[in-house]
Every structure is written in C-alpha cells, then in structure tokens.
Design a protein around this nucleic acid. Structure first.
Length: 289
DNA sequence: CAAGAATCCTGTCAGC
DNA sequence: TGCTGACAGGATTCTT
C-alpha cells in the first residue's frame, strides 16, 4: 500500500514502538526479497538498540547504535505487523521479524517480494545507491515551483510519467499523482515541458496538500494498524478520481442537481481510465486540460 | 540520451 | 464452484 503517506504512517508506527528499544532476537526467513539480504543482517540486528527513524521518499531508515542504518522499502505489497510477542505467530510471507526487549514483535510481510532491505552506514545514508540521485522531498522546502519547473524543462514525457519519476520528485506514486493532477486541473497527458508557469503554480501546492491530507488520514488510524492486520488509513475514501472509473466527476455539474447545466453534464462522461506507460491513470478530461 | 516496455512475484477479483 | 485472465500502491533493467 505504500506511497509516501503510507510509508510515513508506517514509519511513525515503527518509531513509536521501536525507538529506544533493544532487539533481542531477529529472524531473517529467506535469503532475498527483491535483492539478496545483506550479509549478516540477523547478527547485526540482534542486540542492537534502535535509535531513531527517518523517511526518505518511499524508504524507511532505522538507525541502530553501532553506526548502521537499516534501509527498508515496502515495495507494492509490503506491510509491517506490530503486536505483542507470543509463541506460534507464523504469518505467511513474513520475511523478517524483530523481537524487542519489552516483549513486542515487528514483522515485515511482503507477498510479492518487491520490497527490499539493506544496511547502510548512518553517516552516509543518502549516498546509498538507492537514495543517491533522488529528487526533492515533495513536502520539503526544496520542492517548489522553481525547482519543479527546472526539473520539467524540456521534458517531452507526459506529466503523469514525470511525476512518477523519483528523480524529479521523490515519493509520489500512482494514486497521489492522479489525485494531485486532478486537483490542479492538469491533464495527465499534457507534456511535462508545458507545466512550468501557471500550471506549476497550481500543481505544487496541490501535491503538498494531497500528501498532507493523506498523512493526516493515515496517521489517525495508526492504532488500528498497530492492533490488527495492517489495514491503513481512510484516505481512500477521499480519492476523487483514483479507482473511480465511470463514476461522476466530483467537479462537473450533475444533471440531477438542477437541469440548467445539462450541456456541461452531457460533455462530462465521468472519470476516465487510460493507460500511460503501462499503468492506470484516472482523470476527468472535462476538468483537466 | 530519453522514453517506453518488460520484468520481478503473489494475491485478488471479475467474468464465464 | 472452479477456472482464466486482468490487474495491483514500485522501480530497476532492458529495448527502441
């Protein structure tokens, strides 16, 4: 489930449970996820104290005493299960398990195994191959109209694809790109180099607002997530276009609402789904230009 | 070099 | 009910 807001939510849940704790036992249940597990991972984790957490793009960094950080990516299907440590708690696809000195258990579950885990020196986290070259954090001050405009200048790819490119902005995924483009009234098919200017001035604040609202929604349900099965947040109810193919566009007037807008209603066919670079895009051609 | 396709893997769900 | 195919929130690697 993980785009930036979900990763942020997961990171906060992990921090609340693990910061300051010592890992008394670590299980590494398979030799690889997307890539081979780092050598000596279980040994490095066992006995370590967890100092702090950080998120970078869709990655979680867990700092350990001793100078290493664990670099974690949830991939497409990764979840963290947090609960009291009890016997016989095997869960399918639970690839890594941490047990704490205060009797808690954290499991990394990832059926599709697109996730990854690595170790990186804490003082060189951002030099890791997976983080080097990453674009600005969308919620940071470095991401603004100027920086986005510069990154999009001359790009002939559709804006949808450009925003999914982590080198341009780090942490957006398919859902939030669709939502932010809708809110900014920009067609996902518009070429990226036409965005700088008025459109970038609309887009940047909508990206930030969409992510902030989603984090607020995910954070509110953190307790549920900790207690049960990893179901996260309730922001999905706030999606305006994602996953809503053929549903009415929330902006376009509806015939039932009055009748005087019949012409506009006839022009709006509702939310459309198209495929761009192999992935679904949801948008309203009437609203987004 | 840039842009799009193929790829890794399993689970779920719609349609027959 | 069971089978089949499409599709899924990612991001690297391979082709064009």
């Amino acid at each position: 489930m993980p785009e930036l807001p979900e990763v942020e939510t997961v990171m906060r849940g992990l921090a609340a449970r693990l910061e300051g704790r010592t890992i008394v036992r670590a299980l590494v249940n398979r030799p690889d996820l997307r890539w081979p597990m780092p050598t000596g991972l279980a040994a490095r984790l066992t006995g370590s104290k967890v100092l702090s957490f950080r998120r970078r793009a869709k990655y979680i960094l867990m700092r350990l005493d001793g100078g290493d950080s664990v670099l974690l990516h949830l991939g497409m299907s990764g979840r963290m299960l947090i609960g009291p440590n009890r016997p016989n708690q095997e869960t399918p696809h639970e690839h890594v398990v941490l047990e704490t000195d205060d009797g808690w258990r954290v499991g990394f579950v990832d059926p599709r195994r697109f996730g990854s885990i690595d170790l990186v020196p804490t003082d060189a986290e951002d030099a890791h191959k997976l983080l080097a070259g990453m674009g600005p954090e969308p919620l940071g001050d470095d991401f603004d109209v100027r920086s986005l405009s510069a990154a999009l200048a001359g790009k002939k790819t559709p804006i949808k694809a450009a925003l999914l490119d982590q080198k341009i902005v780090a942490g957006l995924g398919n859902i939030y790109v669709c939502e932010a483009l809708y809110r900014a009234r920009i067609s996902p098919q518009r070429l990226a180099h036409t965005i700088p200017g008025a459109r970038a001035r609309r887009l940047v604040p909508e990206i930030k607002a969409t992510l902030e609202e989603a984090i607020a929604a995910g954070g509110s349900s953190l307790r549920d997530y900790v207690q049960t099965n990893g179901e996260l947040g309730y922001f999905q109810h706030a999606w305006k276009v994602y996953g809503r193919e053929n549903e009415p566009c929330p902006t376009c007037p509806k015939a039932a609402a009055g009748g005087s807008d019949a012409a506009a209603d006839a022009a709006c066919a509702g939310v459309q789904r198209i495929v761009q670079s192999g992935r679904s895009t949801f948008y309203c051609p009437q609203v987004q230009r």
